[in-house]
């Protein structure tokens, strides 16, 4: 990674607001939010539903643009990029992990992981190699050709994490990554995130479960479109059960 860039925040929101127009009523989902994430941070964003945490996540993920304010990602102002520009940022700088995994059905794990590289124009052979490495990294080296339906929830989420990792993004954004998993596999996934964090990957995670947030190094609480608390903490290590016997 570029040493110079590590000096400044990787993510910097300045006075970001998001207002939705529903009929005649204006709803402010985010109000004048300032928010920074340093490289290598592991941040958990907490909040109840309707707090604005999803909107915050969508803006961080370049899926949506703020109504006002600025968003610097990796030194670049992305708040005014058009759809093509945002697509390139998502492809190169960000990796996504969703609550419902969002893998392509009837498509092998390998092909699912190849997907971001397809749009980055990586040649087929290299795509295969890197996808295999990423799947091996998350402990699914033996299930390259399995389709999502043939995998357990935890395995599916690990395929999704491999997909987020494969294009070597600066930040991985995880939206309720354990929401559809039982507590045991949730801990496996959190353990994987902690490992990634030790490897220097920046993680931003949205959750409403304090247990899950306890594994992060910093907890941000959102309510009514504002950040009401932002605390650093000693992360609770996720007790790692051996990955190979994770099949339920």
């Amino acid at each position: 990674m570029n040493g110079q860039l590590q000096q400044m925040p990787l993510i910097a929101l300045r006075g970001v607001s998001k207002i939705y127009q529903t009929g005649d009523v204006e709803v402010a989902a985010l109000r004048n939010v300032d928010f920074h994430v340093e490289p290598g941070d592991f941040v958990a964003i907490m909040g109840s539903s309707g707090s604005g945490k999803s909107t915050l996540m969508n803006i961080l993920g370049c899926l949506d643009r703020p109504t006002s304010g600025q968003y610097f990602l990796d030194g670049q102002d992305v708040s005014r990029l058009d759809r093509n520009g945002l697509a390139i940022v998502r492809n190169r700088t960000l990796g996504f992990v969703f609550q419902s995994f969002n893998l392509l059905a009837r498509t092998s794990a390998l092909e699912n992981v190849e997907l971001p590289m397809l749009y980055a124009g990586v040649p087929a052979r290299e795509r295969k190699r890197r996808a295999r490495e990423a799947l091996e990294r998350v402990g699914l080296g033996a299930r390259l050709e399995h389709h999502p339906r043939q995998l357990s929830g935890g395995q599916q989420q690990r395929v999704a994490i491999a997909r987020a990792l494969v294009s070597q993004p600066r930040v991985i954004l995880a939206d309720e990554p354990t929401g559809n998993l039982d507590s045991r596999t949730s801990i496996e996934v959190m353990a994987l995130f902690q490992e990634l964090r030790h490897e220097g990957i920046t993680l931003v995670l949205v959750t409403h479960e304090p247990d899950i947030a306890s594994h992060a190094g910093r907890v941000v609480v959102v309510r009514d479109g504002r950040i009401i608390s932002d605390k650093r903490q000693q992360p609770v290590p996720a007790e790692i059960p051996p990955l190979e016997e994770a099949v339920s």
């Binding site: 899926l63 759809r83 093509n84 294009s167």
Partner: peptide, 16 residues
């Protein structure tokens, strides 16, 4: 629709 959403999220441009 979801497939399209995933593709767009991981970096597909509208023209892709």
């Amino acid at each position: 629709t979801r497939e399209i959403g995933v593709r767009v999220a991981v970096g597909a441009r509208p023209r892709d």
